[in-house]
Design a binder for these strands. Structure first.
Length: 99
DNA sequence: CACGTGACGTCTA
DNA sequence: TTAGACGCCACGT
């Protein structure tokens, strides 16, 4: 399971500005397609000063899964990437940012 | 060992 | 399109 986390970090480091990935895609690309739920747990353990673009990870519906303050932080960071998000956390033109 | 939980995903009505 | 039911699985209690 440690390797799973490492793969997550590696894959995440390759996500460029203006690009997004879902929890499921991360899990699959890391070699564990059934562990989508664990991606969130792993990301939650990242130090708040990490340089990894954790905010470019959203759910398969193209919406932010975080709540409260965390939601605001992710929304703000994504907007700095030039991505538009609704008050509901819905990412406009979501699919165009995948890949 | 059983049970609840969670930054999720897919299927169905 | 949306909401609810299920499936999934490492982890803490």
């Amino acid at each position: 399971m440690k390797e799973f986390a490492q793969n997550i970090y590696t894959i995440l480091s390759y996500i460029e500005k203006g690009s997004l990935i879902t929890y499921g895609q991360l899990a699959s690309q890391a070699g564990y397609p059934a562990h989508s739920r664990h991606v969130g747990k792993i990301l939650a353990k990242l130090p708040k000063d990490t340089r990894l673009p954790w905010f470019r990870v959203v759910n398969s519906q193209g919406k932010i899964s975080l709540q409260g303050d965390a939601f605001i932080r992710q929304k703000t960071l994504l907007e700095q990437d030039g991505i538009t998000i609704t008050e509901q956390g819905k990412i406009l033109k979501f699919k165009q940012y995948l890949g």
